[in-house]
Design a protein around this nucleic acid. Sequence first.
DNA 1: ACGAGGATGCTCT
DNA 2: GAGCATCCTCGTC
Length: 182
Amino acid sequence: MQEQPLNELLSEYVTDVAPQLLGYRVRTGFGGAETEVIISEVEAYASHEDPASHSFSGPTPRNQPMYGEPGTLYVYLNYGIHFLMNVVVGPPGTPHAVLLRGGTPTVGLNTMQARRGRSTDTANGPGKLTQALGVTLTHNATSLLDGPVRLLSPLSPARPYVATKRIGISKATNFLWRYTTS
DNA sequence: ACGAGGATGCTCT
DNA sequence: GAGCATCCTCGTC
């Protein structure tokens, strides 16, 4: 496959990067078990231009990782229950992020099903995705290029996608910044 | 098939 | 103290 280097892709503007991450893989190898999904659903969050972004109002203790290098992993606790994972993107220092909302399991399905405690709906949601991959707050601010949670290039050509409204937010609900493979 | 409601704890005002 | 970038169970149709 031919594609531009990942670090170049991740430096583009967040709404350009987000749909291009569809088809990329996320891989972990915790507890001796390799697990991997193909990303199928993402959302873009554009810092100060986006009232729904965690970095809309500037730096806070929680959103520090968003100000890091493109390719940094930003994990946070949502609703007190679920971890959600983002890829920090955009020109370095701009706190833009792509929320990974779902994936198709390709490696280690049994492990992911065990982590999920069920055999269906393994990674088709942002909280389910992190649980299936074993991603938690301990991985926050690590590098997706060089760390325990890896972002890997697609194995097959890019597929068509659709852009729709983002889900589960109460601000800027009209932005068509949710991208899913059709 | 679908909707309502509860779980659960951190973050920021 | 309010508000979450969610998920699951249970009730009803």
